[in-house]
Nucleic acid binder design. Structure first.
Lengths: 92, 92
DNA sequence: CGGGCTTACGGTGTGCGTAAATATC
DNA sequence: GATATTTACGCACACCGTAAGCCCG
């Protein structure tokens, strides 16, 4: 599992539509679809219901979505803080 | 930035030695060294002091280490919870 | 010289894109 | 038949491992 999987999943969960999520991520649908499936496979959980006319989150999907958002936010925050401290290079 | 970068960094930070960290991760030193460098490049921060006789964390390195540990723990926790809820498949 | 990190250099796996297939309306 | 996701297929990039290079004791 990598952050990429979570970023992709969040996009689909928010758009509830693979096509729009793919646009937003600047990738095409097939890779997006595969990454979601691979995430579901690793977690051994179905995250989305691909029923007719649109996509819906499963119950577990909702829980994973919340945690994914937090993780990705925290990753952003890590990056931001690291860069913010750029000037504090060890004074040797 | 992916979780792999953080996992690698944590291993080096804990071992303070690329060789031992590589063993522990079941990869060889060169890939490990490159991933750390690429993380430093992305964050625009030096995380480690590779001075003679061993590796030391920079000040920023310590901060990033703490956040990395939390992130990786949270990722583990996400995976664990998802699997735990495996049985709660949507009752349709 | 010896231990340990980095650079060089190929090989391979994994993600990506285009195109075809499938499904539901 | 139109829209939307998935499968097929080939390619390219990025990670990996082996081997050579450096650096500091």
């Amino acid at each position: 599992m990598e952050l990429r999987h979570l970023r992709y999943f969040i996009a689909v969960a928010e758009e509830l539509n693979f096509s729009r999520a793919a646009e937003r991520l600047h990738v095409s649908q097939p890779p997006l679809s595969r990454q979601i499936r691979s995430l579901e496979a690793e977690l051994k959980v179905k995250l989305l219901d691909r029923n007719t006319q649109g996509v819906r989150l499963t119950r577990v999907g909702h829980a994973v979505l919340a945690r994914s958002r937090k993780l990705v936010r925290d990753a952003e925050s890590l990056r931001a803080e690291a860069r913010r401290n750029r000037e504090y290079r060890d004074p040797k």
